[in-house]
């Protein structure tokens, strides 16, 4: 495994100069054995599909060139479908760009987000969420829902789970088909309820041409965060959750296959 000469890889993982008693790296980058950048790229077909089998022999015998280790590991560990194309990888990149754009535009009036580390938490949580919920991914509006969690819970991991639980209730709104955005189901319910409970109001809205209730689109998407102040929207949220609190909520979430949609 260590035999033969090659280029040392120590420079990729520099050790602090004051530390002397450190195990020496014996791994060497060996031409013809170590998986090189060129070989790695050659394993992708012209349409962008990876044939990882072409690379496994190299990796088994000579490891991976440190400059591409990260991306190779992603495939080795199964982050991506090995049949995935550049297109799918590009989707992942696009999602991260979208998150990045919106993180810089979320609740910027709050002092809390003057700190770079708090923006980073917002980015982390939204990007990870998009990863674990592939059907929904990232959709504009989620940053409005996530931001309070980061402010309320100091620990990023706790904030993530709070957001994830909130999304179990709301993810249906963000799910899109070719022809509609998920929240439109809620708009139809609102229309039905208003028609029965406040027929005059409903009629008035119809007359104005607002019978599709699209004016309420954003109210449902981000639970009135844009209509109310930051503090008032949190008050509204907790009142809502208290009203619909289900004593079995915890065990319900633990059931396998639970999707959380109403």
């Amino acid at each position: 495994m260590w035999r033969g000469s090659g280029e040392p890889a120590d420079s990729f993982y520099a050790v602090r100069p004051e530390c002397s008693d450190v195990t020496k790296t014996r791994f060497k980058i060996k031409a013809g054995r170590t998986l090189s950048v060129r070989r790695w790229h050659a394993a992708f077909s012209p349409d962008g599909c990876l044939d990882i089998s072409q690379t496994l022999g190299r990796i088994q015998r000579g490891g991976v060139h440190p400059s591409i280790r990260g991306e190779v590991w992603e495939f080795l560990l199964g982050c991506f479908d090995p049949r995935s194309s550049f297109d799918e990888l590009r989707t992942t990149e696009t999602t991260k760009e979208e998150v990045g754009l919106d993180v810089l535009r979320t609740d910027r009036t709050l002092v809390f987000y003057e700190k770079q580390e708090n923006l980073s938490k917002l980015w982390d949580i939204l990007a990870v969420y998009a990863w674990i919920d592939k059907d929904v991914g990232y959709c504009q509006g989620m940053s409005d829902l996530c931001s309070p969690m980061i402010i309320l819970l100091e620990d990023e991991a706790d904030a993530f789970w709070c957001f994830e639980r909130l999304m179990r209730r709301l993810r249906g709104n963000f799910r899109c088909t070719e022809t509609s955005v998920g929240v439109e189901n809620q708009l139809q319910s609102l229309a039905s309820i208003t028609r029965v409970l406040y027929p005059k109001l409903h009629q008035h809205l119809e007359t104005l041409g607002g019978g599709d209730y699209l004016f309420a689109f954003r109210m449902f998407m981000v639970l009135f965060r844009r209509e109310l102040s930051f503090g008032d929207s949190l008050y509204l949220w907790e009142m809502m959750w208290a009203l619909e609190y289900d004593p079995g909520i915890f065990s319900m979430y633990e059931e396998p296959g639970f999707t959380g949609e109403k």
Binding site: L101, D102, R105, T106, D107, R108, T109, Q140, G141, S143, D144, V181, L214, F217, R218, M221, V222, R226
Partner: peptide, 10 residues
């Protein structure tokens, strides 16, 4: 101003 991303249509 620092504006939030538009949700849907405004």
């Amino acid at each position: 101003d620092d504006l939030s991303p538009t949700i849907g249509v405004d």
